[in-house]
Design a protein around this nucleic acid. Structure first.
Lengths: 231, 231
DNA sequence: ACCTGAACACCGTTCAAGT
DNA sequence: ACCTGAACACCGTTCAAGT
């Protein structure tokens, strides 16, 4: 008559009933929770993160998570920042060319986000964590050293932030679409009475050189920054 | 004994039991649904849109919506595009200064999104609708007329797209924070062992001139575009 | 053609309790 | 200090039915 499976033996998934791990689970910790959240989102996307699934993944009850974490929002904050750490360029930092340093850090930033496609959409929606702040701090130093004046600094930083985040979020959304959705998009562009000849001609939505567009656009932006001769 | 209220008389909200409207509701239609969705999100944010609430708002049962609409995703697609229409500049379009035209359209784009703060976060996550496509088409024409070469066109368009979307989404997130969260942010910056002197000095996170940063950053980007002498 | 309620398989989180 | 299950107030959507 019992509708719930027996609770003897090792912890089992509420969802599948299969044993989650043959060995003993280590105790819960913030680190384990955050790491599991990253893995879960890597595998199943932003919407795939569920407190219940997260607990399952860790072999614990759902509510156990809440002793370590305030809410799901807190998990998202920590997961995002955990993925954004910067280890710096190969050699000692201040290279002769400021542009090289800036581009290296931003390419790495973008690469981090592309490794975890859920992160780009999360970036602008949460409080800034230590890793993101460290990157902004570094960017600020680099631009000052390049000779940007104080009055232009914040606008320059936000513009670069917008470029990195926008390029990444746009790419994870529009990049590598299925052949079907490509055909759909193309048909949409050619719908009678609603035509977009310029977009059609330039293949804006079919062009797949997202890396090139990122680099080139970043070049435009850096070219446009007003720099004084030297720091 | 009945646990549900009587179903005589005009349609009542399942949630509150109050009559939703003293007059007869007009029949459902795609237009009414989309408009109600926009109103709901304007009032309660992206997370405030619920199929049940939407139905309540319209005085219908939840499942009635699904005759007009495929899914909640479909409602979001339509709501976004409905809010992004461009009516063009006051006078006939091709002004002597291409920059003026571009800036006008982009300022208007940003203004549309700021009027509906949920829209910026939605923009990069959905299929492009007619209003957004029309704006991209217009932008493409304007840049070609300005003399950008074909090979640079798509990178330029995406960079500008990133700027508009990024600036708006960043502003709706970080803009006008409460005094409390400002203090929190400041304390975070000054935490011992984890300091961000450059960000602190430039007041990157406290500066509230988002309009200025948008315009200035767009200026940098347009300055950096490589233009041939004339179209 | 248009609308409906019941039901299903989920959510995040509160609570009162266990060790 | 750390973990738990039951329960609450929600979700989006399928289905079989009504008019």
């Amino acid at each position: 008559m019992a509708t719930r499976s027996s609770s003897t033996g090792p912890k089992r998934s509420q969802r599948t009933g299969k044993p989650l791990q043959s060995t003993q689970e280590p105790p819960l910790s913030l680190e384990r929770i955050v790491q599991a959240a990253v893995e879960l989102m890597d595998a199943r996307g932003l919407g795939g993160l569920t407190m219940r699934r997260l607990a399952d993944h860790l072999g614990s009850g759902v509510m156990s998570l809440y002793w370590h974490v305030d809410s799901k929002e807190g998990v998202l904050d920590l997961a995002l920042d955990s993925v954004m750490e910067y280890r710096g360029p190969a050699q000692a930092s201040p290279s002769p060319d400021w542009r090289e340093d800036v581009i290296h850090m931003l390419e790495d930033w973008r690469a981090c986000m592309l490794r975890h496609p859920w992160s780009a959409a999360l970036l602008p929606r949460r409080a800034l964590g230590a890793s993101v702040l460290a990157r902004l701090e570094l960017l600020s130093e680099m631009l000052s050293r390049a000779g940007i004046c104080e009055a232009d600094l914040n606008a320059a930083i936000w513009s670069i932030w917008n470029h990195v985040m926008g390029a990444t979020v746009t790419r994870t959304n529009f990049g590598t679409p299925s052949e079907d959705s490509k055909r759909d998009a193309q048909q949409r562009l050619e719908r009678p009475g609603e035509r977009y000849p310029a977009i059609e001609a330039s293949r804006l939505l079919l062009d797949e050189d997202w890396d090139g567009a990122f680099r080139k656009g970043l070049g435009f932006l850096l070219d446009g920054l007003p720099l004084k001769p030297a720091g």
